[in-house]
Design a protein around this nucleic acid. Structure first.
Lengths: 199, 199
DNA sequence: TGCATTTCTTGACACCGTGTCAAGTTGACA
DNA sequence: TGTCAACTTGACACGGTGTCAAGAAATGCA
C-alpha cells in the first residue's frame, strides 16, 4: 500500500536480479541480497516469506520488465506457418539470455523446492502455449511433417527450445547467439516440417 | 585393501543407488544412506570424504555395472553412417533410464557443487565422443547435411541426446520410451542429414 | 591362542544457511 | 503529541554436513 514499502520491494528484487546476473549465483543468500540492497536480513522477511518466494517474485518482476509476451506476440504476425515458426524461435531464443540470470536460480531451486518447481513449470507452460500456437499455424498451412500430431510436435518444439539446450549450445559448446538462433531455426524446421522449406 | 572394506564400500554405493532410484531423491541424506546400508553415519565418512564424492562414486559404480561402453560399442558395428546414428541413438537412449536415478542426483548437485559438475561433465564427455564418432561415420558416407561441420553436428547431436531432453519428453510430456526412441532417431536424422533417409 | 590393526560405533560438537521471535528505533503524518 | 508502518539489532532453533575423540568389535597374523 505505502509507496515506501513498494519501493523497497522493487529495490530488493532488482538487487537480487543483479546479484544473480553478475557474479556467481551461489552468492545470493538472503544475507547477500540484504547487504547489497542496503537493508537488514530480517527486513527481507518482512517483504517475502522465504527465499523461494523472493526468487520467484524476482523472475516475475523481470518478466514484467522485459515483457516476454509482447515479443512473442510479434511472432504471431508472420504470414506463413513456417515464417511464424522462425519468428517464434527467434523471439524466444533472444529472450532466453535476457532472463537467464534469474531463471538459472529458479531452475536450480526446482530440483529441491516444490514451489520453485511450480513457478518454473508455470513459466515454461507459457512458452509451451507459444509452441502450440506455432504448431497450429504449421498445421493450417499443411506444413507439419507426416506422422507428427499436434501434441507430439508441440512437445518436440518445446523440448528443442528449452533453456537447458540454449545453455548447452551457447555456454558449453561455445556457440554465438547467432549460431544458436540460425541452427535452432533450421533444426525446428527440419524436426517439424521434415524438409527444409527455406534453405 | 581388505575385502571387508571393499564389500562395505560396494554395499554403500548400491544402497545409495537404490535410494536414489526408488523413492524421492531428496531423501538421500548421509544419514538416510547410512541407515539403509546398516551402518553408522560416521562410517560413511571413513569411505567417502563427503556427499559429493559418494554420489560421484555411486554413478561410476553404476556405469561399470551396466557397462555403457559395451552398449555404445555395439552401435559401431552398423554398416552405414545413418544406421550407426540410429544404433547410437537407440543404445544411448536405452541407457538413460537405467542410469537416470543416479544421474539425477549428480545433475542436481552440479548446480551448486563444482566437483559434482566436473564428474557430470566427464560423464557427458563420454557421450560426446560417441556422438563425434557417429558424426564421423555420417561424414564418411557423405550423409551430413550441407552447411554443418563436424563440430556443429556433434554439438547438436549431443544436445539432442541430453538427459534433460529425455526427462522433458518421457517424464514431463509423458512419452513412452519407444516414442522417445523413434522420434529422437527421426529428429537426429533430420537434424544431421537434412532429409529422412529411412522413412 | 593372543595380540595388533583395521573397521566400525557412539556421542559430542562446530559450521552454515534458513527462518523465527522479541524489543527497540526511526520517520511520516494527522 | 501520539500512532502506525517500516525497519533494526540481537538472539535463537532447526536441519544437514562434516569433524573429532574414545572405545568396541571383527579380522588377520604370529
Amino acid at each position: 500500500m505505502s509507496s515506501k514499502s513498494e519501493k523497497t520491494r522493487a529495490r530488493i528484487l532488482q538487487t537480487a536480479l543483479d546479484l544473480l546476473e553478475s557474479g556467481n549465483p551461489q552468492k545470493t543468500r538472503m544475507s547477500d541480497i540484504a547487504k547489497a540492497a542496503g537493508i537488514s536480513r530480517q527486513a527481507l522477511y518482512l517483504h517475502f516469506p522465504n527465499r523461494a518466494d523472493l526468487l520467484i517474485a524476482a523472475t516475475k518482476y523481470l518478466d514484467e520488465k522485459v515483457n516476454i509476451d509482447a515479443s512473442l506476440a510479434e511472432s504471431r504476425t508472420a504470414a506463413t506457418g513456417v515464417g511464424r515458426l522462425d519468428a517464434f524461435v527467434q523471439a524466444w531464443g533472444n529472450h532466453i539470455p535476457v532472463v537467464y540470470g534469474g531463471a538459472r536460480a529458479l531452475m536450480a531451486l526446482s530440483d529441491t523446492d516444490a514451489e520453485a518447481q511450480a513457478a518454473w513449470t508455470d513459466r515454461m507452460n507459457a512458452v509451451r502455449h507459444g509452441c502450440a500456437a506455432a504448431v497450429d499455424a504449421l498445421i493450417r498451412d499443411g506444413d507439419l511433417r507426416a506422422g507428427l500430431d499436434a501434441k507430439a510436435a508441440t512437445d518436440l518444439l518445446w523440448t528443442l527450445l528449452s533453456v537447458r539446450n540454449w545453455v548447452a549450445l551457447t555456454q558449453t559448446c561455445g556457440w554465438t547467439q547467432d549460431d544458436y538462433l540460425q541452427e535452432t531455426q533450421k533444426l525446428a524446421r527440419h524436426a517439424l516440417c521434415g524438409i527444409d522449406p527455406n534453405p
